[in-house]
Amino acid sequence: MKTIPLTEIPLIKPGDDLSEYILESLKNQELALKNKDILVIAQSVVSKAEGNIVDLSSIEPSSRAKEIGKKIDEDPRRVKVILDQTQEITRLGHVLITLTNHGFVCADAGVDDSNVEEGKVTILPENPDNNAEEIRKKIKKRTGKEIAVIISDSWGRPFRLGAVGFAIGIAGITPLKHLKGEEDAYGGQLETTKIAPVDALAAAASLEMGESHEKVPAVLIRNAPYESGEGSISELFRSEEMDLFR
């Protein structure tokens, strides 16, 4: 498996066509897409292209946002944006852990003030699966190649330090691989094992994307083992009854 950072992609603005910039970057790097290639694209540029940027100066914080902001030492305007993207607050400590309107459980409902102008924040795309599918279709129309697309974001994890890439939207790839019934190295039959290749691929791409000044919003992954197909990122969600951390 090979990961290739796509460089020379300009700063994205609302209304920009990401597929065009990605194809231009591939051309500049003398890369031709192949069937079964995977494109992993950072959530931040997808949100910007979609116009999901909030100017905090336009936000009037609610009394609840002010109360929470005081408790966690956070700008209440930013807290108000987080609450607007939230179904439920699952933990309130030094940071907000929320169940987003999409169904993700993550810090601050995915609201991010990095890689955006000062005083502004990005919010998650409204439907990341749709974003991934739209990009996949546009690239197939231009190149004729059958690829997979993953929209990724960097999140923390319970009981572990350090952010890693997670898939938040997918197209052309099945999100889960079920190993039940297969044999392990000693001939034993697996009973419940499932793996999430889309998260593994997002994590691999995040090493190329970086978290600060790298300016690599997309990564090409080649020769990775995965199953092509239709699916939704929601297939990875645990129900509340099965989630031991909520």
Rank of each mutant, 00 (worst) to 15 (best):
L11C: 11
G15A: 06
Y21R: 09
I22S: 06
I22Q: 07
I22G: 02
L26G: 05
N28L: 12
L33G: 06
I38Y: 03
I41K: 00
V46E: 00
V54N: 04
S57I: 06
E67Q: 14
E67A: 15
I68V: 12
I68P: 01
G69H: 09
G69T: 08
P76N: 11
K80E: 15
Q85L: 12
T86C: 09
E88D: 12
I89L: 07
G93S: 13
H94F: 15
V95Q: 15
I97S: 04
H102N: 08
G103L: 12
F104T: 01
E117N: 03
E118F: 02
T122S: 00
P128N: 08
P128L: 10
E134W: 10
E134V: 13
K138W: 06
K140H: 03
V149F: 05
I150C: 03
I150W: 00
S152P: 04
G165R: 04
F166N: 00
I173E: 03
I173T: 01
E182C: 13
E183M: 14
G187S: 03
I195G: 11
I195R: 14
I195W: 09
V198W: 01
A200H: 10
A203K: 10
A204N: 04
E214Y: 05
K215L: 09
G229V: 11
E230L: 10
S232Q: 01
E235F: 12
S239Q: 13
